[in-house]
Every structure is written in C-alpha cells, then in structure tokens.
C-alpha cells in the first residue's frame, strides 16, 4: 500500500518541482541587475514574462497530473524496481568521480577506470575478460583518435 502512495506522490513531484523552479526563476529575474545603458529593465522583461508563463503551465500540468493520479505509470514503477535505480545511480556517481579525476590524473588513466567500472557494474563480473579487453582497447582507440588524429588536447 505504501508503495502505491509513493508512486502516486512521485508523479506529482515533478510538476511540483517545476512550480518551485518557475517561482525561483521569477524571483531571480526580478533581482537581475539594472542595465546601465538604454532601458535599465531591458534584461528583465523576457525572463520575467517567461517565468509567468512557466508558472501558469506548471500549475496546469500539476492539475492534470493530479486528476490522473490514480493511473499507473509503468515506467515510474520500473525506475524504482530491480537493478535499475542502482544502475542509474552508479552511472551518475561514476560520471561525477570521472569528472573530478579527468584533469588530475589524465585522460587515459581516468578513462580506463571509468569505462572499466561501468562495464563491470553493468555487464557483470562474470564477463571480466570481455570487460577488460573492451576497456583497454576502447580507451586507447578513443585516446588515439581524439588526441592524435583530431588534435584535441586531452589532459
């Protein structure tokens, strides 16, 4: 029973966040600095107008979803079940760590770690042989392609 309510709530969270975001955007637009040249409010009009529309549409969206709150959304269920949330979280966290390491320890080293980690987690530990081969080959090839052939300066 609890799961059902949480699923329902989840459907409403996004429209709710959008409402909050629109209001934040509106306040931020209001507080933009005045321009020193020409019409001082010039930079504000567009974002302010936009934020009003955004808020309106977010509220309409919220109401729409609220009316349909009892309908099942298969995909929201899936996103919370089984291995999926772990996979998504792992990829994002790994990407985050990769971003931090990328310029510190260099492209090749960080990429081998990142791709290896992803492959081991997604493809499973049993296929370690494939994982290692793919990691090393693909990292090297992409390094070679970008850095040497395309002349992109990689760290």
């Amino acid at each position: 029973m609890k799961e059902v309510t949480s699923l329902k709530a989840l459907k409403l969270i996004v429209p709710f966040i959008l409402i909050i975001a629109s209001i934040t955007y509106m306040i931020a637009s209001w507080n933009l600095p005045d321009a020193n040249l020409g019409n001082g409010n010039g930079p504000k009009y567009f974002p302010l107008g936009l934020s009003i529309f955004m808020l309106t549409f977010s509220i309409v969206y919220f109401i729409q979803e609220f009316r349909k709150r009892d309908e099942e959304n298969e995909e929201i269920r899936e996103i919370l079940s089984g291995r999926t949330p772990k996979l998504i979280a792992f990829t994002v966290v790994a990407g985050f760590i990769y971003s931090l390491l990328f310029e510190r320890i260099g492209f090749l080293f960080s990429t081998v770690l990142f791709l290896g980690a992803l492959l081991f987690f997604i493809n499973g530990r049993k296929k370690w042989m494939t994982n290692i081969i793919v990691t090393i080959c693909f990292s090297t090839i992409s390094w070679y392609a970008f850095s040497v052939l395309l002349g992109v300066s990689l760290p």
Binding site: G106, F107, T140
Partner: peptide
C-alpha cells in the same frame, strides 16, 4: 600486445 601497447601509452602520458 594490446595490453602492452596501452601500458606504453599510459606511461608516455605520465
């Protein structure tokens, strides 16, 4: 040999 080559690349990079 693939492994060796990539090792070389890593060393060159460092």
């Amino acid at each position: 040999s693939v492994a060796l080559i990539s090792l070389l690349f890593i060393m060159a990079g460092c």
